[in-house]
Nucleic acid binder design. Structure first.
Lengths: 166, 166
DNA sequence: TGTCTAATGTTGAAGCGTCAAGTTAACGCG
DNA sequence: CGCGTTAACTTGACGCTTCAACATTAGACA
């Protein structure tokens, strides 16, 4: 619990304004995307991303560990989700013969069809909520800033793994 | 929803890059903030925001409906959270005499102390994850872009309320 | 004044995510 | 070879959010 650091470096006016706006975005945008996906396609945003990543992988197959990484999810979360997707016959699990520790997830034909069917309305929503309102130049800036933030976030995750607090 | 629109307006290269990065941010940043708040202060990010908003309100008191709006949360979610916060003696609920429909939430002294104690580590995290990596100019651009996105999101919410699908 | 409708909150159930614990398999190394 | 350690994954419990249903009150209006 951060001992008694003398005085935190509070945010100044510009930072506070930016933070309030960004805060709204990271709260509302995922909710809006999830809501649309659930309503129009009956699946979670995360389920969609998992299947979309699989659909682009060679043989529509990926190791769970790797799939967890590229979807920014925990292994546990992924395991639960794959269980659900298996019940709907969209994904199949198969242990790898060469290495008994890894298990592979494969997107079925039915799963591929589901991704293809779900993509258009999703893209439409992203376009409407994000890109329709932005100039070309802003899109480039958004990418630059987001990648910068991603860098800080990755560093943060890494440091947590290496230096458990307390 | 979107019957058989001929062909969706797919994202081009720049948009796709920006989207991937933004997607990572809106997925990882809330998780990182929640994780820090839970670990260091034992409360949810949303609980913190609720109490922080109350702490800045006149009389540390706000109507639930209004509190829901400024915290970007649903009324139901807020009701559950306030119930939890009441159990910890951080917030108190009181129906308004003048208008039996509204109920007010008030931050207690204990709740105020909790916010004050939680703020430094939170600000430190925001600074580390967001602002330490950005130039001044980028902060301004981030604000501009975020506010633009917020505009689209608000319009989206509004349209959903007015035009229920199906 | 009586009724209808809308606004404000509450509640319970169901679904999803996290966390901690457990399993199994590979690896290092004495 | 046996042992301990690590990596990959699974599972169950718990907590939070959503959703739908409900309760209550205020205002409209006839």
């Amino acid at each position: 619990m951060t001992e008694r650091s003398p005085e935190p470096r509070w945010l100044d006016g510009e930072e506070m304004d930016a933070w309030l706006a960004l805060n709204g975005v990271i709260l509302l945008l995922p909710a809006a995307l999830d809501s649309q996906m659930q309503r129009d396609n009956g699946i979670t945003m995360f389920e969609y991303i998992v299947m979309a990543m699989l659909s682009e992988a060679p043989g529509r197959t990926l190791q769970l560990k790797r799939l967890a990484r590229i979807t920014n999810g925990s292994l546990s979360r992924l395991s639960h989700v794959v269980t659900r997707l298996e019940k709907r016959d969209w994904v199949r699990r198969r242990p790898l013969a060469e290495n008994g520790r890894v298990t592979m997830a494969t997107l079925t034909d039915l799963g591929y069809a589901k991704v293809v069917a779900s993509a258009p309305s999703h893209v439409e929503t992203v376009r409407r909520l994000v890109f329709d309102g932005l100039e070309r130049e802003q899109v480039r800036r958004l990418q630059e800033i987001s990648e910068q933030l991603l860098g800080s976030l990755d560093a943060d995750c890494a440091s947590e793994r290496l230096a458990p607090q307390r």
